[in-house]
């Protein structure tokens, strides 16, 4: 028996596993030991509102080197089949690293003040 199947068999009804943690949950409704019973729940937390400048991507200039994808600390750049699809600004804090690491000669990313309306930034946004 593998550990995971074994663990599952041991689960008890009253142990809250997959229930979402409600912000106003009372103490009886929380998983024991402050465990977050699922991975990646910060998907529901948006850090994009920290931003004052935003990256604006020019797909026609992009050589898909993926330096932006790699060096973005907030995992904003979307890649599919080895091609950059755009930037998802949900969590983009506007640090400007992507624009800085984009090869100088290529210059496919520019940082613009947050209030300007620009195209090509959305990606999957």
């Amino acid at each position: 028996m593998t550990e995971s199947s074994q663990t599952k068999n041991l689960l008890k009804d009253h142990v809250i596993i997959d229930k979402a943690i409600e912000p106003n949950a009372g103490w009886r409704d929380l998983p024991i030991g402050a465990v977050i019973p699922k991975g990646g729940t910060s998907r529901q937390f948006t850090t994009g509102d920290w931003r004052t400048i935003r990256p604006v991507w020019s797909p026609e200039k992009c050589i898909h080197c993926h330096r932006c994808w790699l060096y973005c600390p907030d995992m904003c750049w979307v890649s599919e089949d080895k091609k950059i699809q755009g930037v998802d600004l949900t969590n983009c804090k506007g640090c400007g690293i992507c624009a800085n690491v984009c090869p100088t000669k290529v210059h496919a990313i520019e940082m613009h003040p947050e209030d300007t309306k620009t195209e090509h930034t959305a990606g999957e946004d």
Binding site: R43, H64, H66, L70, P73, D74, S79, T90
Partner: peptide
Amino acid sequence: ALPDLAKKPVRFIGGHRACAGCGFPITIKI
């Protein structure tokens, strides 16, 4: 090559609250 690296989902995602431009999320990713 970097584009190949991006084919695998990163097991550390956004929505964390490190400062804008923090270095360690990049370390984790690599």
